[in-house]
């Protein structure tokens, strides 16, 4: 049996006494587009942040391409990997954030170049070309010299996505990337993601855009109170919810 791209087993995460992830199991194959839906506090974002170790997890396994993220097992004990290894593992995934989190002191182009030069050790000229390529890809080929503060929210989010995908990650994580945007700017960002999905990029998205989840995903996961309550193909999960909770959650959603 070949190892899936992403394998999560029995993942537990607590904040102090509060258990936010209560045993998550899921896998993703290469090219999968999985959307996580659920009400706030259900653990969606935390799950995403455990995958690139922006949050520690207390128990279970997160593995990308067979590599356990953040920890290894030594004499039956869980040991946190050294900082350098963790940084290298983080570079296997790319993340786009709700609030973009662009580096405000760098131009759009330099935002993309930073990781290429410092992490991938690429010469600046090559990194610049890649930055230009991805900026064009997200429709901002002419804004490479603009600073984040000079761009609209939608443009900033597109640069942030370009910054993440330019690193050629194995898996892209999208954390409610349209939630902080004005309604008229949402589509430009969703179009970029749809375009990447068509390209075969493996993506895990936390989203409140039900129509988008329905149209783009190969799988939809519904989380409730720190557990996966339902999962399956979008048509099945979104159109024929099995549980009353999901039906309630989907009430009024259009797709």
């Amino acid at each position: 049996m070949t190892e899936p791209l992403l394998r999560i087993e029995n993942l537990h995460k607590t904040f102090g006494k509060l258990e936010v992830l209560k045993g998550i199991d899921m896998t993703m194959e290469r090219g999968d587009v999985t959307s996580i839906i659920g009400s706030s506090g259900s653990g969606k974002t935390t799950l995403l942040r455990c995958i690139n170790l922006l949050e520690d997890y207390q128990d279970g396994v997160v593995a990308i391409d067979g590599d356990q993220i953040g920890y290894r097992t030594q004499n039956g004990r869980r040991v946190r990997r050294p900082e350098r290894q963790i940084a290298a593992q983080r570079a296997m995934t790319g993340m786009a954030f709700q609030h973009f989190n662009l580096f405000p002191h760098l131009t759009a182009s330099r935002n993309i170049m930073l990781g290429l030069v410092k992490v991938r050790k690429m010469p600046a000229a090559e990194a610049k070309e890649i930055a230009a390529h991805w900026l064009t890809r997200v429709g901002l080929g002419d804004r490479g010299d603009a600073y984040p503060g000079q761009l609209s929210g939608g443009q900033q989010q597109r640069v942030a996505i370009a910054r993440a995908v330019a690193m050629a990650p194995k898996l892209m994580l999208f954390d409610e990337v349209t939630s902080a945007l004005d309604p008229e700017l949402v589509n430009e960002v969703l179009n970029v993601i749809t375009d990447l999905a068509r390209d075969g990029m493996t993506m895990l998205l936390v989203t409140h855009e039900m129509k988008f989840a329905h149209d783009v995903s190969s799988k939809v996961v519904f989380m409730h109170q720190g557990r996966i309550a339902e999962a399956g193909p979008p048509a099945e999960v979104l159109r024929n919810p099995k549980s009353a909770r999901l039906a309630e959650f989907l009430k009024g959603a259009k797709f």
Partner: peptide
Amino acid sequence: GLREAGLSIGLTEFQ
């Protein structure tokens, strides 16, 4: 989010 964005592209804490 600034530090997290840095970490997410694979920078070490120091970088």
